[in-house]
Design a protein around this nucleic acid. Structure first.
Length: 429
RNA sequence: GUGGGUGUAGCUCAGUUGGUUAGAGCACCUGGUUGUGGUCCAGGGGGUCACGGGUUCGAAUCCCGUCAUCCACCCCA
């Protein structure tokens, strides 16, 4: 009986594992240098934790089961509820703003397709305890900091930034009331994906009055703060709208000053699926827009309270590994991850196995990645193996000394074995 | 949940009017005359052609079903 990997999961063979580690290492490095500290929680949580902020719909997309104690458990499909749970438990002792990050392994029982799997990794960045738009700017900057480090430029990726409250205000102006707001937002979310007349049909079905569609689209098509300010004065004077526009304006300015403004664009077609966003929202896309979102996030000021905590501001984003990997591959930005040995130790004469083992032992102890052939065979064969193992140096042992060969240049220096073992780093550079 | 594509060696695939022991490249293993490497040469292992049934003298090839996988829709935390 042969088994294969479960649907929607991946086997990480060494080369793929190296790639996964590259992504995770970069995420960690960038997080730390942006002032975030790492946390993690259990993969298993109570099922209820994930139904608090959403309904039944989510439950069907969860891997869940009942344990032998009768507890309804689920494998985490996201880490934000865990974050909220953990932060709430210690909220009074944590200095704010809380800047936390995580690289959790997540599970969703969806149908796999391009850039979407049942098991994946997601980089999460969150700032809790700050109402300032500066916090949003920091999160977005951190996302770009990472993408830029991975070699992606403004012509490769774009951060599209929208505003949940402004969009809601525009819908209200269009005549949408609170009871149909969610459906209207969902309809708006579809607009970039469908033809204009098809959108009109969807919009009307979602309760958006047909005669207000033009006005609504005019708002959504605003690409600059100036364009926003040219909207009708009634809309602008509405309570909160000027405030929301000011936030956006500040955000864009901060991002500009931090040097990542050319990655960012105002785009009110960004709505985000979930209802809990309360402020600025954004998604990162490949410039061509042919892939799913690489990352998405925004402000969610009510979430901690929803989980039984105090009312504190929170903002953050998630970046999945699947789409990012596809994007990096498409852009030719996957690094050469062929790791290798520092030194491959070769017995250049018969009867030197003890010397080989001694040398390997000493080198490894000295922090040098060293290995040797499993077979006692010709020097040529062993050198071939050294190449295959991607070794930088070969140490060819003989009774009267050791030839340290630089495998890239072919240069070889001969030294007494004792001296080589005493100071290997003088030769293995 | 719905629709479409694809299932031949570890990987990428060829094999099409049905016709002996099913092929290539890469990868892997061995060897290339007591021996200093990457690209070279030779040899070798490895496939019940996804699985089950049917048509036929004969099926990888045609038909039906099942499963798997990919892509799209739905959904998107």
């Amino acid at each position: 009986m042969r088994f294969k990997a479960v649907k929607g999961t991946r086997d990480f063979y060494p080369d793929r594992m190296a790639l996964r580690n590259y992504l995770a290492d970069t995420w960690r490095r960038v997080s730390l240098r942006n002032g975030f500290v790492e946390f993690d929680g259990p993969v298993l949580e109570y099922l209820d934790l994930f139904s608090v902020k959403s309904g039944q719909e989510i439950a069907s997309q969860l891997f869940s089961f009942t344990d032998r104690g009768g507890r309804a458990l689920a494998m985490r499909p996201e880490i934000t509820p865990t974050l909220a749970r953990m932060v709430n438990a210690q909220i009074n002792s944590l200095p704010r703003p809380i800047k936390w990050f995580s690289v959790p392994r997540l599970f969703r029982a969806e149908n796999p397709q391009k850039g979407r799997l049942r098991e994946f990794f997601q980089w999460n960045i969150d700032i809790i305890g700050s109402d300032s738009v500066l916090a949003d700017a920091e999160c977005i900057f951190t996302a770009i900091d990472c993408l830029r480090e991975m070699g992606l430029k403004p012509e490769d990726v774009v951060v599209r930034i929208g505003s949940r409250p402004l969009t809601v205000a525009a819908l209200k102006r269009a005549g949408v009331n609170d009871s149909t707001m969610e459906a209207a937002l969902a309809a708006l979310d579809k607009r970039p994906k469908v033809a204009p007349d098809a959108f009109a049909e969807i919009a009307v079905a979602a309760g958006i009055p047909a005669d207000s569609l033009d006005e609504l689209c005019a708002f959504q098509d605003c690409k600059t703060i100036d364009a926003l300010n040219n909207l009708d004065s009634v809309f602008l004077s509405k309570e909160g709208n000027l405030n929301a526009i000011a936030h956006l304006s500040d955000l864009l300015q901060y991002l500009d000053v931090m040097g990542v403004g050319d990655y960012c664009r105002l785009d009110f077609s960004i709505v985000r699926g979930l209802a809990y966003y309360t402020g600025i929202v954004y998604e990162v896309f490949d410039a061509a827009g042919s892939l799913r979102a690489v990352a998405g996030g925004g402000r969610y000021d009510n979430l901690l309270k929803l989980f039984g905590g105090p009312e504190v501001g929170a903002t953050g984003f998630g970046m999945g590994d699947a789409v990012l990997e596809i994007l990096l591959a498409e852009k030719g930005k996957l690094p050469d991850l062929a790791g290798g040995l520092d030194c491959f130790v070769i017995d250049g004469e018969a009867g030197l196995l003890d010397k080989v083992l001694e040398a390997v032992g000493r080198l490894r102890q000295g922090g040098i990645a060293a290995d040797f052939s499993a077979k006692r065979q010709a020097v040529g064969k062993q050198l071939k193996e050294a190449n295959r193992r991607n070794a930088r140096y070969a140490a060819i042992l003989r009774a009267d000394g050791v030839g340290v060969k630089n495998l890239a240049t072919g240069e070889q220096t001969n030294v007494p074995i004792g001296e080589f073992l005493e100071k290997p780093k003088a030769y293995i550079i």
